[in-house]
Design a protein around this nucleic acid. Structure first.
Length: 609
DNA sequence: GCCGTTTTCGGCCCGACTGTTTTCAGTCG
């Protein structure tokens, strides 16, 4: 019971409920569009980058595409009371073992129903094992519409399911990106390859990635078949390959260390843009785009755009020839839309905005003028990890990145182990040291920052007098994450009220794959930040990518500003700013929304004056 | 059941793959 409680209200669980209801409706043969509606809602919830429950608390439930008055009100009841009478009554119509079997790949509602019924599988706790036993005893092959082949497939699928449920799930974007980059670099060395692109969630720079999908465009069209084969062969011989999963004529998959699947597709020149568009997704974006195209009289697929009506009344074209696109831009433009960058193709309002020509010019990595959250090796007896590089080395790195400034934001001295006077002395010496190093730096200016812990009661882990030794403070929560939204909100608001606080660091505290963020009443935080000219950090640390993209976009509605920082503890990590920028882009940020695109003179005004 | 610049009614994405049911249903991305 306890264990179940812990799993309550997660997006995964809600998506599973919605998908289960779609399955029951399918079996009960209700209107198929109602089934699609539930599946769409399930997809939508599953791909949210925030917890649905938090959105519900913020009153944003009905903003989610696919959630309307009916599903929305049932979810409202579900979150309020812990159950939905309507959902429960639907789910009761079929044996619950069915929903367990549906988790096995290649088993959908219909097969699951048949298996459950014919084999009388009634215990959800043992159903997978029972099915496996039935396979091994040859009982599946005897069922109508199943055969030897299906029996073997089911056995393999169960195997996969059992392995997968105990294996790694999605990985943080930066890890996937590094792996993909290695393989893309390898592919680019092949003289037959003109272009290599990421596809899917990797191209959209989603915070977590499952499989890596790649596309190649070949150079020599005339030798098509031969060169395709050569490229597939070259791909599967990649030094990172652990094993080859499959290799066909236009597609192949390999598994690389540590058990990551890489899919490659080859497409000819003239429809490369259509393929890129199609496999970049998201699914929700593609569905919306196809619905939009349909209204204009076009059908959209991975090869191009097909008119579903004759192009002109005078000259009817009986063949309705497929229109092909080598470039994605042309495809969007043909439909009367502005080009939509992959990062915002999430099926929200991007098509509407593209039609109105209101797609923003998203911020780019080369517009960043400095990094305000960097940890050095200067030993100030900190509460958390020291960095690896000296102030001088960090400045040299910043110069190589063509930055105008950096902000040193070491962790505060550990106040539990030190007297107030000792802390003051440490802070004074540190400030002298930074000033000394700064005086010798010609190109890159520096700011004296500090990342200060927000204590459980909202006080900051630094004596107030010591604030005199810094230019600005970043305040962050590093402990006691389990307070409820109300207490956490007043805790953070109190911390933000101290002098010189300019940045709220990694605002949700999430660690991808490890820890959910804590809950906050975001409208209050946004309002306060806007009022006090405080900005929210978009932290580029691979496991953080925090603030999450959805909250970034929400913050924009409150006209809040952001700063993209690396939180680097070593110089090579300063290159990771790129990942924070990807979060900002997914949150629809333009250059002006990001404080550290400002030149030195202007950021100084905000930070110090 | 959801949704809105042809709509508050009347529409609703598209194709590949596979096994088995010889013409298609089920599943997936």
């Amino acid at each position: 019971m306890k264990k179940d409680d812990l799993k309550r209200f997660t997006n995964k669980e809600v998506a599973h409920i919605l998908r289960s209801i779609a399955a029951v409706y399918l079996l009960k043969r209700v209107n198929r569009f109602r089934i699609i509606a539930y599946e769409k809602a399930a997809d939508s919830v599953e791909h949210l980058t925030r917890e649905l429950k938090d959105l519900w608390q913020d009153g944003k439930l009905f903003d989610i595409p696919g959630i309307g008055s009916s599903i929305g009100s049932h979810l409202d009841e579900y979150f309020k009371t812990g159950k939905s009478i309507h959902f429960d009554s639907i789910l009761k119509k079929v044996p619950s073992t069915l929903f367990v079997l549906m988790k096995i790949p290649t088993i959908g509602p219909k097969k699951a129903y048949k298996l459950v019924k014919e084999l009388k599988l009634s215990d959800p706790a043992t159903v997978v094992g029972d099915l496996k036993k039935a396979c091994l005893e040859g009982r599946i092959a005897k069922l109508e519409t199943f055969g030897e082949r299906s029996q073997k497939d089911i056995l393999e699928a169960i195997d996969l399911y059992e392995k997968k449920s105990s294996k790694t799930e999605r990985m943080p974007l930066p890890y996937a990106f590094e792996i993909a980059k290695d393989i893309m670099d390898y592919l680019k060395k092949n003289p037959g390859i003109k272009n290599v692109d990421a596809l899917g969630s990797l191209r959209r720079m989603v915070a977590t990635i499952g499989d890596v999908d790649l596309a190649v465009q070949v150079k020599n069209e005339k030798l098509k078949i031969k060169s395709y084969k050569e490229i597939i062969n070259y791909f599967i011989k990649c030094p990172k390959t652990l094993r080859v999963d499959n290799a066909g004529e236009k597609k192949a998959s390999i598994i690389v260390n540590p058990n990551i699947r890489i899919d490659l597709r080859i497409q000819e020149d003239k429809s490369y843009g259509s393929m890129l568009q199609y496999f970049t997704g998201s699914k929700a974006h593609n569905i919306n785009l196809r619905e939009f195209a349909l209204k204009k009289g076009y059908s959209l697929n991975e090869y191009g755009i097909k008119p579903i009506k004759p192009i002109s009344n005078k000259v009817p074209n009986p063949k309705f020839k497929l229109l092909e696109f080598e470039k994605e831009e042309k495809l969007y433009n043909f439909l009367g839309l502005q080009y939509i960058p992959p990062e915002i193709r999430e099926g929200t309002d991007e098509i509407e905005m593209a039609k109105a020509r209101k797609i923003p010019k998203l911020v780019e990595t080369n517009e960043i003028k400095g990094d305000l959250h960097i940890h050095s090796s200067y030993d100030l007896k900190p509460s958390h990890d020291l960095g690896k590089n000296t102030y001088k080395e960090i400045l040299e790195k910043a110069e190589r990145l063509d930055y105008q400034y950096v902000g040193f934001a070491d962790h505060n001295p550990k106040i539990a182990d030190l007297s107030k006077n000792e802390v003051m002395e440490i802070m004074r010496l540190r400030s002298d040291e930074i000033n000394k190093v700064a005086a010798k730096s010609r190109k890159v200016k520096c700011f004296i920052g500090l990342e200060v812990d927000i204590l459980p009661d909202g006080k900051i882990a630094l004596p107030e007098e010591a604030i005199n030794y810094v230019d600005y403070l970043i305040v962050s929560v590093h402990s006691v994450f389990n307070q409820d939204a109300k207490s956490m909100t007043s805790r953070v608001l109190k911390a933000l009220s101290y002098p010189k606080v300019k940045i709220l660091g990694h605002p949700t505290g999430r660690l991808l794959g490890k820890r959910e963020g804590y809950e906050l009443e975001w409208p209050k935080i946004f309002d306060y930040c806007k009022k006090k000219n405080i900005v929210l950090e978009i932290n580029s640390w691979p496991q953080r990518l925090d603030l999450p993209d959805l909250l970034v976009r929400e913050g924009l509605n409150y006209r809040v500003k952001f700063v993209v920082d690396t939180d680097a503890h070593a110089n090579d990590q300063m290159d990771g700013i790129f990942y924070g920028i990807s979060v900002a882009r997914r949150g629809w940020c333009e250059k002006n929304d990001i404080m550290n695109t400002l030149p030195y003179i202007e950021i100084r005004k905000w930070l110090i004056e």
